[in-house]
Amino acid sequence: MLSPVYVFMKLNQKYVAVKEPLDFFKPEELEKLRPLGIFYLPEFAETALPYREAARQVHALLSWKPKLHQALPPAPYEISDSVLRVMGPLWGTRGETGTGEDLEIEPFFVAVFANELCDLLPGESLQAARDASIDNYELAIFRSSWAVWLALTLGWCDLAFLSALRKRVFDAVAMGQALTGAPTDPAVEVDELIACAEKSIKEAKTRALFASDFEQAPTRAAQKLAFRLRRIRKEFSQPIENLPTIYGERGFADG
């Protein structure tokens, strides 16, 4: 979910939260809540919409197949360029854009983005993960979404691949399995990328993700990410104040 979900209790004249962000409804829960009629989301949900909108744009870019008589399908580098143009403004930078300030983004919004972009995770996996451990479930959501984000940043623009990557990381984290095998295999860039995601998000409470995490990393994927993020910082990023946050007055998290 984009935000906490509330229902209105008429007798008490109060809104009561029935779902937390990142949670999901089971069919029986929906059936149970059906008499209440309407779900309410706080104002915050609207602030997360740009990320969902961006994901839709990326989805449209990646799934666009023009008819032969209309236009030539875009080349991978053209798609990669356009995807970066869509994703770039979702990064925030402290200080003026184009300076050496670090880029940052909150994992919650990355999860919103990935959820909209990729195929939905299977209900059984989600439920099993949530029932096993809420912390692991959230960590799995964040880490898998971050892996998708990084893959797109690297120019891996294929919806099937991204969905498979997300599911792979989610399942592994939710079940507490090793993601890439120990030690990480530098021969396969996908494994390197997953290792990067793992390193950036060590726990579900990770507050923000930074581009500088990749600057000193030795792997090829991290080095490539670092250079790609430099372009974002230079051309597309926005001041962090312009971007939504889950913290503070308009957010739902303490801090």
Partner: peptide
């Protein structure tokens, strides 16, 4: 396991070029 790739001057995704 192979050794980590040595550092380079620059990695450029070709979408970042002035194509």
């Amino acid at each position: 396991n192979p050794k980590a790739s040595p550092k380079v001057g620059e990695y450029v995704e070709i979408g970042d070029l002035d194509y």
